[in-house]
């Protein structure tokens, strides 16, 4: 069976839901099925949602988004863009400033690909700090379209926060275990490679050091304070 929009030359530039194509269509006895009836829905911006920018700015990390003048220095310098062409920080910032909710929603699973390398923030002529604006946009995307974000990212972010806020320390071994369990990949913990590394770390004493990491001293009180503040923040911006 033919793939929808197959006949379009620059197919990658056209978004799926703009392709109007009937699989079976006969008009006045002529079979115009599939590519013979392809139409493209017009791409007309019909409204703006200014509250989206306000939402990003309110997060604190996105506070400098208004400085952006769309020069493209961030994307020009972007590590993630070199792997994922749809990850375009300049474009994300533009979508948020305009409040183009529909286009941003389509890119919900791309936003988290930022590797946090700060090349954009280093070079940005207006000191927008795009790296951290992307963090803020990521939060908005999680809130609005969390179900569209890859499970790996949801599990990963959750595991980090649970462990760091919970213990005040980062235990890379238990973190990875939590990640894999969250993804239903716990069997990989017992792979030959993991067993080899585990044995090696047992012999060279690193396993002992890792087990000893525990919690930061006096952490339980700080944990309560931090959780309280995180909760009140969530209440302000549900």
């Amino acid at each position: 069976m033919a793939v929808k929009g197959e006949g379009i030359v620059e197919r990658s530039l056209v978004e799926d839901d703009h392709i109007l194509e009937q699989e079976k269509l006969i008009i006045e006895g002529v079979d115009v099925s599939g590519r013979w009836n392809t139409f493209l829905a017009p791409r007309v911006q019909e409204d703006y949602t200014p509250s989206l920018e306000a939402e990003v700015r309110a997060l604190g990390v996105g506070e400098n988004i208004r400085r952006c003048w769309q020069c493209g220095m961030c994307t020009a310098s972007c590590t993630a863009n070199s792997v994922y062409p749809d990850f375009n920080p300049r474009h994300f910032i533009y979508l948020v400033k305009l409040g183009d909710v529909q286009r941003l929603a389509k890119l919900a699973d791309v936003v988290w690909r930022c590797v946090g390398c700060y090349k954009c923030s280093q070079r940005c002529p207006r000191e927008v700090n795009p790296a951290e604006v992307m963090e803020a946009i990521g939060v908005i995307v999680h809130r609005r379209w969390g179900e569209r974000v890859a499970r790996e990212e949801q599990v990963g972010t959750g595991a980090y926060k649970k462990q760091i806020y919970g213990t005040g320390r980062l235990n890379l071994a238990t973190l990875m275990a939590a990640d894999l369990r969250g993804l239903g990949r716990q069997r990989e913990l017992l792979s030959a490679e993991q067993m080899r590394i585990g044995m090696k770390m047992f012999r060279d004493s690193r396993l002992f050091h890792t087990l000893r990491l525990g919690r930061a001293p006096g952490w339980s009180r700080l944990r309560r304070v931090l959780e309280e503040h995180r909760r009140s923040r969530e209440e302000v911006h549900p």
Binding site: Q70, G72, M73, T75, A76, P85, N88
Partner: peptide, 11 residues
Amino acid sequence: VKGEDTLLRGP
């Protein structure tokens, strides 16, 4: 020379 062409939306 590496950069972004913002009209083409890409590097």
